[in-house]
């Protein structure tokens, strides 16, 4: 009699015990993030998942995890994984959620199925099913993380390239942080767009906020200056700290073709000169 019991029946019969076992398994793991998820939440989440899991395997078709029976389960698992990715769980912690279920199920099956041969085949089937669920977990987990990364990258590049019009025909762009090639592209693009938009003829690239200038960063700077010139505007680089000037020369980087100024105010003064503008202190004529 006992030999004829299906996996579903075995698990369904012991659903409560299975749930407890699974929770114990999860809580035993030292990686359990009590700071990120409370025991109560975990209990509810697991209960819900187990219910869906049992519903999915009701017809005892464990092999085909792509069948429509598993749609809801996969969806739910994906939701859980993405959620965990967003909340900063590690891959190990997320993976353990589904792998610990495996342990709990095996434990139940061991008790319910006495025929060893049958136990072996059923365990293999469950094993395969859980593995495919684990794949779903990792896929969605990684996708969730990537979404986070992409969003952050976009945010950073948006906030880190403010192009300011400081005067008629003069733009300034303070660069803060490291200049890598993708950043350079964003800097160049927003600078050139702004040049077209404002018809500015002089752009000041202030690098006081760039921690270090190596040959690669210098190359990016040269590229930006050259592109500005192609558009028909002049580009001045300002905010070069003494130690940066030293490294530039020590590395043998040739910046001779580029207009460099020590500070933003010097660059601005130079820009005024080029545009034949004059800033003077107002003399109070009524006093004399």
């Amino acid at each position: 009699m006992a030999a004829k019991i299906t996996v579903y029946q075995a698990l369904n019969k012991n659903a409560k015990k299975l749930h407890e076992d699974w929770l114990t398994q999860q809580m035993q793991d030292e990686g359990l993030r009590e700071d990120l998820i409370s025991n109560e939440e975990l209990r509810l989440e697991s209960e819900e998942f187990l219910k869906t899991f049992l519903a999915a395997i009701k017809d005892d078709l464990l092999e085909d995890s792509n069948s429509s029976n598993f749609d809801k389960l996969n969806e739910m698992l994906a939701g859980i994984s993405i959620n965990r990715a967003r909340h900063g769980f590690s891959p190990r912690e997320t993976g353990y959620y589904i792998f610990s279920l495996k342990q709990a199920i095996f434990k139940t099956l061991e008790k319910e199925i006495t025929d060893l041969k049958k136990l072996y085949t059923e365990i293999l089937r469950v094993n395969k099913l859980i593995d495919s669920l684990a794949t779903v977990t990792f896929e969605t987990f990684i996708r969730g993380r990537e979404e986070v990364i992409i969003r952050q990258t976009n945010e950073i590049s948006d906030i880190s390239t403010p192009v300011i019009q400081v005067w008629d025909n003069i733009l300034a762009l303070p660069i803060i942080g490291t200049l890598d090639s993708s950043r350079t592209q964003v800097v160049m693009e927003s600078l050139l767009m702004k040049i077209v938009e404002t018809e500015s003829t002089i752009a000041i690239l202030d690098i006081s906020g760039v921690p270090a200038v190596d040959s690669l960063v210098a190359q990016h700077l040269i590229k930006t200056v050259s592109a500005t010139r192609l558009m028909g505007a002049e580009c001045i680089i300002s905010g070069i700290r003494p130690e940066i000037a030293q490294t530039i020369v020590h590395l043998g980087i040739d910046l001779s073709g580029i207009n460099t100024k020590a500070s933003l105010s010097h660059a601005l003064r130079f820009a005024f000169q080029t545009l034949r503008l004059e800033v003077r202190k107002k003399t109070d004529k009524t006093a004399s």
């Binding site: 160049m188 693009e189 050139l192 592109a227 192609l230 558009m231 028909g232």
Partner: peptide, 18 residues
């Protein structure tokens, strides 16, 4: 030469044609 588009300028630089 006037009115070069920003995208064209960036591409020319990357291409190695300043």
């Amino acid at each position: 030469v006037v009115g070069m588009q920003p995208a064209v300028a960036i591409t020319l630089i990357e291409l190695g044609l300043p």
